[in-house]
Design a protein around this nucleic acid. Structure first.
Lengths: 227, 227
DNA sequence: CTCCGCTAGTGCATTCATTCACAAAGCCGG
DNA sequence: CCGGCTTTGTGAATGAATGCACTAGCGGAG
């Protein structure tokens, strides 16, 4: 409603990044609500399930339109539909995984991806020993076939689980093949190719952050003044 | 969570969470600088390597004290030492992994953890078929032995890679055993036990966020007005 | 000893995100 | 049909994070 430049024809509300990051939480919560047979859900309940507060839920959802009824709550089915469509989950997303190491292997058969609409449709590796290996239903292909597979299968997302040293080159190649989004597990900073969006997941970093806080709590305890 | 009364005697600079999240990036960058034999590094270089801007680097580092020399840069070794000590990486952190599924198995032997000072010292599962299985040097133990292992080995960090339905219970149990930090891979919200810090990593969410942006870019393109 | 070039450190303005608090709706019971 | 209860949707206030732009201070050349 408060669209600054009310351009007719381009009603882009421009969702804040923090809100985008919470959509998956709401998505999960709504799925569980829906499976539980609930027709409506209040912002309070959603907040509880998503681990945030109710005001945030309401503001976040308001960016997408009016899906709630005052005095009642949100229509679970309608809201779920909206979020699924925003996330583009109306059809399955195909992904290609590059780097079939320890982690890569696990990611290929990771159930969580499939359950949420993502399918690792191809996996490649530079190591000739790995090419041809079967992992679940998938056969590892040579890295040289990357471009063909991406184009033929209509793959939009790349997953990098190579060693750090190879990550930038792989990202560039994925970009050239027409992949528009990359999830990078290699612990290194990648410069995004033109038009490609990258998200980084560094598992060790997560532990380091936990360690930092733990460290802090301990040392605070140690030097607590004996009042 | 807030610490309103600034007790004299506890000079805690209180590091912003956003800064904490970037420490691992700086840490990585400094390790690589150090291995490259560099003695000093400028905020500009660090920024480049960490994928952030220079002002942010300087502000972040300033919370920890004065490790730079104007006109010169930061002393790589001193700064690396400071960050390692802040992250508590002066000695190895022992972790226990709960839930030896697909992902769990990969995490146990994930090289990235060990390289950065984390060691999965124990792994447990409820499934009797999995107990006794060898993964690398580790033998999967029954979940009932969790408490013993945590106490005997001095484990401070728990990693949850169970199914979502089991996650809360596992977290509670970890809390009881004295684990103070948890890295949760189960796609569900966990209520943190008293005194325990939880970080969530939801791999499917990461893909959903990518999908959201991709979706948005595409539909913006579609409805671009033909001026 | 002085001056110049360079870079850390930081106050300030701005932008982004969270939270509060309340008015606008909708439902239901009487 | 009305009045009370509930819950959304949203201005406005607050707080956190970012980025700019300037100052302070070091090292090295002359």
């Amino acid at each position: 409603m408060s669209d600054p430049q009310g351009q007719p024809g381009t009603p882009r509300p421009q969702i804040p990044e923090a809100t985008v990051g919470r959509l998956p939480l709401y998505h999960r919560a709504l799925i569980s609500m829906h499976q539980g047979g609930n027709d409506t859900v209040s912002s309070e309940q959603l907040a509880e399930m998503a681990g945030v507060n109710a005001a945030k839920v309401r503001k976040d959802l308001s960016y997408f339109g009016t899906y709630g009824t005052r005095g009642v709550g949100y229509d679970v089915e309608a809201l779920l539909g909206e979020i699924r469509s925003d996330l583009g989950l109306t059809s399955e997303w195909k992904c290609v995984l590059v780097g079939v190491g320890n982690l890569g292997t696990a990611l290929i058969s990771f159930a969580g991806f499939r359950e949420r609409g993502f399918h690792v449709a191809a996996a490649v590796d530079v190591d000739p020993d790995k090419v041809g290996t079967r992992i679940g239903e998938l056969v590892v292909a040579p890295q040289s076939s990357l471009e063909t597979m991406v184009r033929d299968e209509g793959i939009a997302i790349g997953i990098i689980s190579t060693i750090p040293a190879a990550a930038q080159e792989v990202a560039d190649e994925l970009g050239r093949c027409g992949v528009r989004s990359i999830l990078n597990f290699a612990p290194t900073v990648i410069e995004a190719p033109e038009g490609v969006l990258i998200r980084n997941v560094d598992l060790a970093s997560e532990l380091e952050i936990l360690a930092f806080h733990d460290q802090r709590r301990s040392s605070a305890r140690d030097r607590r003044p004996a009042v």
